[in-house]
C-alpha cells in the first residue's frame, strides 16, 4: 500500500528528509499556490515548475521513476475532467490542466515521501490547523493499517463462504450479508476505540494529547525555505509571463 512506500522513502538519507516538516509544508503550499495561480502554462513556465519538482526528487534521493508513476494516479480523474475541453477542441487548455495537476501531485509526493506523517501533522498544527483535527488525523492514520488488515481478513472470510460476485447477483439477500459484514467491522472499530480510550486513561490521560517538544529550526531549514519560496515566486512571476 501507499503509506508503506512513503515510509520507506522517508528513511532514505536525502537532504530533504532532514529538513523541518514545517518548512517543507510551507514550501509545498508556496509551490502549489504559484502553480495554481499561474496563467496558462507556456513551455518555459512548465519547464520551470517541472525543474523545481525534479529538484525535490533529487534532494530527497527519491526513485524518480516510481514518483513519476505514482503521481500519474491523478491522470485518470484529470482526463475525465478535461474530457470536455478535449472534445470541445481546447486541447491546449486540457493539456495545461493535466500538467498542473500532475506537477502538483509530484510536489505532494516529494513532501510526503521525505516527511514522516507524525512530523507533518505537528507541522500542520503549528501552522494553524485546529489541534482537534490534527489529533483525529493522527489516530486515523495510526489505525488505518490495523483496520484495513481486518477488512482484508473479512473479505477473505466473506469470499470463502461463497459470497462472490456471481453469488451476490443471484441472491439479493446476500447484499444484506455484505452489509452485515461491514456492520461487524464497524462494531469492532467502536470496541477498539473504546479499548484505546481505556489504554489512554490507564496512562493518566486527562482530555489532552500532548507532544514532546518539536525539533528546532536549523540554518539549513531557513535556507531551504528561502530558496524554495524565492524560486517558486520567480518561476511564477518571470517564466509564467515569458511564454
Amino acid at each position: 500500500m501507499h503509506h508503506v512506500v512513503l515510509d520507506e522513502w522517508g528513511r532514505r538519507p536525502g537532504w530533504l528528509q532532514k529538513r523541518d516538516a514545517r518548512v517543507k509544508l510551507v514550501a509545498l503550499l508556496g509551490y502549489l499556490i504559484a502553480l495554481g495561480t499561474a496563467p496558462p502554462l507556456a513551455l518555459p513556465a512548465a519547464a520551470g515548475f517541472g525543474a523545481l519538482a525534479a529538484a525535490g526528487v533529487v534532494l530527497g534521493k527519491l526513485p524518480a521513476g516510481a514518483v513519476a508513476l505514482r503521481a500519474a494516479l491523478v491522470l485518470p480523474i484529470g482526463l475525465f475532467l478535461a474530457a470536455g475541453l478535449l472534445l470541445g477542441g481546447a486541447a491546449l487548455r486540457a493539456g495545461d490542466l493535466l500538467v498542473r495537476s500532475y506537477l502538483s501531485a509530484v510536489a505532494v509526493l516529494v513532501v510526503m515521501g521525505t516527511t514522516p506523517m507524525a512530523g507533518l501533522l505537528r507541522a500542520m498544527e503549528s501552522l494553524g490547523v485546529p489541534r482537534f483535527l490534527v489529533v483525529v488525523l493522527h489516530f486515523l492514520y495510526r489505525y488505518l493499517f490495523v483496520l484495513s488488515e481486518q477488512a482484508q481478513h473479512m473479505r477473505l472470510a466473506v469470499r470463502s463462504r461463497g459470497l462472490d460476485r456471481a453469488g451476490l447477483r443471484r441472491c439479493p439477500s446476500l447484499w444484506k450479508a455484505a452489509g452485515g459484514a461491514l456492520a461487524v467491522l464497524f462494531a469492532r472499530s467502536l470496541a477498539r476505540a473504546e479499548a484505546i480510550h481505556r489504554a489512554m486513561l490507564a496512562r493518566g490521560y486527562r482530555g489532552q494529547v500532548l507532544w514532546l517538544r518539536a525539533a528546532r529550526m536549523r540554518p539549513g531549514d531557513w535556507l531551504f525555505l528561502a530558496v524554495a519560496l524565492t524560486l517558486c515566486a520567480a518561476v511564477r512571476v518571470v517564466l509564467a509571463h515569458a511564454g
Binding site: L140, S148, M154, L185, F186, S189, M200
Partner: peptide
C-alpha cells in the same frame, strides 16, 4: 474522544476496500 473519531475514520477507509 479523539480515538473514536480517528478509528471510525479508519473504518471508512477499510470499508471502501469492501
Amino acid at each position: 474522544r479523539f480515538a473514536l473519531l480517528g478509528v471510525t475514520g479508519a473504518f471508512v477507509f477499510a470499508a471502501q476496500m469492501v
